[in-house]
Design a protein around this nucleic acid. Structure first.
Length: 801
RNA sequence: GCGAAAGUGGCGGAAUUGGCAGACGCACCAGACUUAGGAUCUGGCGGGUAAAACCGUGGGGGUUCGAGUCCCCCCUUUCGCACCA
């Protein structure tokens, strides 16, 4: 049972309290059901806020982070979450991050970590690089108002794309994950099957034989291609503008437009512009030379950065062709059972894939799908293209120009170039007393004692890599460490992992649907391939809880609507705080925090407590003197029935849908029932053994959700053993059963009366009782009964005319 | 634009399979206890009516003896994706 570990910002917020209250309730429930539950906690403790705090308060990141951890641990303990602290994982400590470095070396050896000069996302506020996943709508994921810039930098990348296909395919296996998260990952991976086709530029531009390779998912429409469109940053364009000043100016404008749109996050709405290069490229299928354009709606980082433009069968191409009066050539007709329709030209652009090819040489008459297969095969045969698969997901850039992260264990030697450290030289320790600025550039580069080292290969002078790792590296495998937290010879022991993994249940916010959860899946697959783990996936079941809302908005410091857990605990107690976070909404939905709501919970707990206080003497009653149900007073029998019904309802919700709000409501109903039986209890009409039974069971039912009070009540009921080791109660169906039930009687579907019948009444008896009801009689007087519907135990409906 | 989820009293939310809509809690009203009540206990509480009738689950149609629940169309909100070739 695992909840996502927090970033140690200094204080828990209500979102954490909710997340951990859900997880703790489930862990405790599982313990009471006899399972061996591993329920750990840790700290995702590298990252930028520690550096910001260092600047602001002049406190070293390490000090700030460790004191935050200490403070938050106190908060967690106060809330009563049952974690195994002996397995605590703190990612910023060397005994953890050394294994990040170890993994990095393994990745490097496997060719999965590599260095590349590339255009990267740069957040000026963070003064560091961001992974693609950390760019949200053109903005930094941490600074919603800061546009991400593009910079050219040399960076370390992890080859997550090697697993792109498997990451996509295995989503199928994750049936215990929310559909929504699977779809988000599927979109992120963005697999697309298509064809690469070379358009020959030979004789028209550049050196003879040079080609433009386009990527298309609709090669079947290629006879309708009337131009080729290049991304403004395409290498061929770069080459062309080097020799054409006029074109250069125009292309630069396109680039600027594209960049602006990207930064504004509305690249989807960019006004399509283009410029003709004056060159032509040859369509290898029909030998036709089509004009080559540069257009701002073509992105260099998708596919090949070049497309064939088929205006008749693509919306974007259609729009573009209309604007520039390019030829629009129809090559697909609708395939319809109606021959008339098949012959008529469809409204343009016509994009379905179930049409029939026309004007397409030898391929005319084929259906689209078959045409795609045959045309791809032909391209490969004749060596001008091939079927291919592209992905939207890119390799994971992990270099960060920051101090507070895992040092990357590589050195640069003048003689030997890039050299990995040996495993025995790990960990590369993060030095203390490093001046932190947000000036940009890696802070570690300013620390000579860190920077200057010797080459592991030749022993000559070398300098260390000064970038640190993205913190998502830390969280990609932290949960494995819980299972073997003190292993100093390996990240963990494989056999131990095989016992605990995959994680049965992981709980956290949906905001990690892509970043953390896709990196973790990648990391697991890599570890499996190196033989370190046996599972293909880290997490069998994932649950994403809703946000905590106040006054209609997500709690945030900016809006000033945060509720402090410490305040709540001080005013209402830990149990009430936890219980309210479970009661106010089902866990998958957003929760609206209302101060008056938690007061109601506190009242309920008080009511419950007073019942135990008033009836302390029952603890001495012999449990064995059970009175047969038939000999109980009606008040006692009602109470007994309600008790067993409550056990049934609470157990059911714990096993199924985790609607703790209705669990708590059920226990409240039971307490209300107790209060209505108060007089009977005082009058001695409820046997002490039954009262004691009620007391013991309520303590058990409440134990997962309100542990402090539950333990106290458990003792008040005369028990001394550990409540978590007591078994979860079972209801007795016979005792839960009603003797009599109320049956609504409808006439033509409208409620007209209520009759009380024995629970075991036959259909006919129910029907007769319904027909005999005075109100019903009145409603059907002078009407003809067409039929009578009797649903056993549910209702009677009399249809009259 | 595409995809998903949601829409129920004054509020948070119940109604697990088509079967008494509004459990439970909050707020509110009344009463009891009390010097006092922001404590506690009891009762009331969708709209409407003197009481009924009747009307009520975003709107409009439909299926059914019966629809919050199933089907069709539409509206609103939230989230995700968005020239992905």
């Amino acid at each position: 049972m695992l909840e996502m570990l927090p970033y140690p910002s200094g204080a828990l917020h209500m979102g954490h309290v909710r997340n951990y209250s859900i997880g703790d309730a489930l862990a405790r429930y599982m313990w009471m059901n006899g399972y061996n539950v591993l329920h750990p906690m840790g700290w995702d403790s590298f990252g930028l806020p520690a550096e910001n705090a260092a600047i602001k308060n002049n406190t070293p990141p390490k000090e700030w982070t460790l004191s935050n951890i200490a403070a938050m641990k106190v908060q967690m303990k106060r809330l009563g979450f049952a974690y195994d602290w002996s397995r605590e994982v703190t990612t910023c400590l060397p005994d953890y991050y050394r294994w990040n470095q170890w993994f990095f070396l393994k990745l490097y050896q496997s060719g999965l970590a590599y260095r590349k000069n590339s255009k990267v996302n740069w957040c000026p506020k963070c003064a560091t690089v961001l992974a693609n996943e950390q760019v949200v709508g053109g903005m930094c994921w941490r600074h919603e108002d800061t546009p991400v810039e593009q910079r050219e930098l040399e960076q370390w990348f992890l080859r997550i794309t090697k697993y792109a296909d498997e990451l996509l395919r295995d989503l199928e296996k994750l049936q215990g994950w929310p559909e929504k998260v699977r779809i988000m990952q599927q979109n992120w991976i963005g697999r697309s099957e298509g064809t690469l086709v070379d358009f020959d530029l030979g004789g028209t531009v550049g050196p003879a034989g040079s080609t433009i390779t386009v990527f298309t998912t609709r090669v079947d429409t290629i006879y309708g291609a009337t131009s080729v469109q290049l991304a403004p940053e395409h290498p061929i364009v770069t080459d062309l503008i080097a020799r054409n000043a006029e074109l250069r100016a125009q292309v630069e404008q396109l680039i600027a437009e594209q960049r602006r749109a990207k930064e504004a996050g509305d690249i989807g709405n960019i006004e399509k512009h283009g410029v003709f290069t004056g060159r032509y490229a040859k369509n290898p299928y029909n030998g036709e030379a089509v004009p080559v354009w540069v257009a701002n709606y073509i992105l260099m980082d998708y596919g090949t950065g070049a497309i064939m433009s088929v205006p008749a069968h693509d919306e974007r191409d259609y729009e573009f062709a209309q604007k520039y009066k390019l030829e629009i050539r129809l090559v697909i007709l609708p395939a319809s059972t109606d021959p008339e329709e098949t012959m008529t030209a469809p409204p343009l652009p016509f994009t379905p894939t179930d049409g029939i090819l026309v004007n397409s040489g030898e391929f005319s008459g084929l259906g689209c799908e078959e045409a795609i297969a045959r045309m791809s095969a032909m391209a490969e045969e004749k060596n001008f293209g091939k079927a291919t698969v592209t992905f939207r997901i890119k390799d994971w850039g992990i270099s960060r120009q920051r101090y507070w992260g895992t040092p990357i264990p590589m050195v640069y030697c003048e003689k030997d170039g890039v050299v990995p450290l040996a495993e025995k030289d790990l960990p590369v320790l993060l030095p203390d007393n490093v001046p932190i600025t947000l000036a940009g550039g890696s802070p570690l580069a300013s620390v000579p004692s860190f920077l200057n080292t010797t080459c592991p290969k030749c022993g000559g002078p070398a300098r260390r890599e000064t970038d640190t790792m993205d913190t998502f590296v830390d969280s990609s495998w932290y949960f494995y460490r819980y299972a073997d937290a003190h292993n100093s010879g390996a990240p963990f022991d494989t056999a131990t992992i095989a016992y605990w993994f995959p994680i049965d249940q992981y709980i956290g916010g949906v905001e990690h649907a892509i970043l953390h959860l896709i990196y973790s899946r990648f990391w697991t697959k890599f570890m499996r391939d190196m033989g370190l783990v046996k599972n293909d996936e880290p997490v069998t079941r994932l649950f994403t809880q809703g946000m905590v809302i106040k006054d209609g908005a997500k709690m945030s410091k900016n809006l000033g609507n945060v509720v402090s857990p410490d305040d709540m605990v001080a005013r209402y107690g830990a149990d009430a705080t936890r219980l309210y976070s479970l009661f106010a909404a089902p866990p998958d939905r957003d929760l609206d925090w209302q101060e008056s709501g938690i007061e109601g919970i506190q009242r309920f707990l008080g009511r419950l407590y007073r019942f135990y206080l008033r009836n302390r003497q029952v603890r001495n009653s012999p449990q064995a003197d059970n009175v047969p149900p038939t000999e109980l007073s009606s008040e006692a029998r009602s109470l007994q029935r309600k008790l067993h019904q409550t056990i049934k309802r609470v157990s059911h919700d714990f096993q199924g849908r985790w609607h703790f709000n209705t669990c708590i409501a059920a226990i409240m109903e039971l307490v209300n029932e107790i209060y209505s039986a108060e007089e009977a209890i005082a009058g001695g009409r409820v046997p002490p053994s039954l009262i004691l039974d009620v007391q013991r069971n309520i303590a058990l039912l409440l134990a997962p959700m309100a542990p402090y009070l539950a333990h106290e009540l458990w003792e008040m009921a005369g028990e001394t053993g550990n409540l978590l080791k007591a078994s979860w109660p079972k209801h007795d169906p016979a005792l839960a059963a009603e003797d009599e039930i109320e049956i609504p009687v409808q006439v033509n579907g409208k409620l007209r009366g209520l009759v009380v019948v024995p629970a075991a009444a036959s259909e006919d008896e129910i029907k007769q009782a319904g027909l005999a009801d005075e109100k019903v009689k009145a409603a059907i007087a002078a009407k003809q009964i067409v039929k009578v519907i009797v649903v056993p135990k549910k209702l009677v409906n009399i249809v009259v005319r």
